[in-house]
Amino acid sequence: MDSIFKALADPARRTLLDALRQRDGQTLQELTELLDMTRFGVMKHLGVLEDAELVVTKKEGRFKYHYLNALPLQQTIDRWIEPMLAKPAARAVLTLKATLERTNTMTKPDFMMQTFIRCTQDALWDALTDPGSMAAYHFMCDRVEGEAREGGELTWLLPDGNKMLSQRPTKVTPKTRIEATFEPHFFGPDAPGSKMAFIIEPQGPFCKLTIEHYDIPAGQEGVSEGWARLAASLKSWLETGTAMKAPM
């Protein structure tokens, strides 16, 4: 937590985070143009943000893309807010029909988040594929139906029975990677779908979980907060047995 406060203390680093919040996936050159300093100076600031896990990167060819990782901030806030929440607040949502007309080719993600969870690879895989487990830690839904297999379909249901989200796994590498569609039923009756991926990497007693979201349509940028809440609740559930069902 000290590294987070240190990273946020510098106005230049806050400028970089603001820029990534407005447009994720920027290169070093793009970020350098925002600050009156050398390329090396910007690299040093980005290094501090990466050390605090507030920025994560993905390399594609010659370019390295930078993404705001909101999860550490969410966990810091929840440290004080969560004890004051008696129960999740119900949110009224519409039952919507999602459409998906995109290819399965995954290139540069629009959104990326990483967290480290003290658990086994098997435990994390089960949490991401077992409908009962998904419902246990999801911050809004209390039931998930379907199967997390290629060709299957998963549906997240709100307490009132309405659909919140549907996903169709398109590529599943056991215990390592899940690629799926992302079909939100909360952005409008004609809301387009997108694509996402979970990547699991064992690292000693921890597992690194990376969440990537591709082809996010305009107007759906708010999914980043949902991912932060989901990841925070998943981490708490696996490490302590208690989910953090903080309402949006």
Rank of each mutant, 00 (worst) to 15 (best):
E147W: 05
R79F: 06
A180I: 05
A12K: 05
T240H: 11
Q74V: 12
E153R: 15
P217M: 02
G61H: 12
P189L: 12
F40S: 12
K175E: 03
D190E: 09
F111W: 12
Q220E: 05
E50P: 00
W227K: 06
A86K: 14
F5R: 11
Q75P: 00
K6R: 15
I117M: 05
E212F: 06
K235I: 08
N162A: 06
T240A: 12
G161M: 02
P217Y: 04
P109I: 07
L154M: 14
A197V: 10
P189G: 09
R168V: 15
A12E: 09
A180H: 12
T27M: 02
T242W: 10
K59Y: 05
D122A: 15
E179Q: 15
G219C: 09
R177W: 11
V144M: 11
L128Q: 09
A52F: 04
T27V: 05
W237M: 09
C207A: 01
K195P: 02
S166W: 05
A52K: 04
M244L: 14
L158F: 08
G61W: 13
I216Y: 03
E179D: 14
E147K: 09
K59V: 10
Q203C: 13
K87A: 14
D110H: 15
A136N: 02
N69A: 11
A218F: 08
L96K: 06
A7V: 08
R13Y: 03
P131I: 14
P109F: 04
T32W: 07
K44E: 11
T32K: 03
K87R: 12
G161V: 05
R168Y: 09
T181P: 01
R14T: 08
P192M: 13
K6P: 00
C141V: 09
A180R: 04
Q203H: 10
L209G: 01
A12R: 06
F40D: 08
L8W: 03
E30K: 02
G226K: 00
T173S: 06
L85Q: 12
T181M: 07
N69L: 08
H45Q: 05
C119K: 08
A243M: 13
A98V: 11
A218L: 10
R143P: 01
G47M: 03
T32F: 04
L124E: 10
V48W: 07
L85V: 15
G226H: 00
G61L: 13
F186W: 04
E150Y: 10
D122G: 07
E82H: 08
A232F: 05
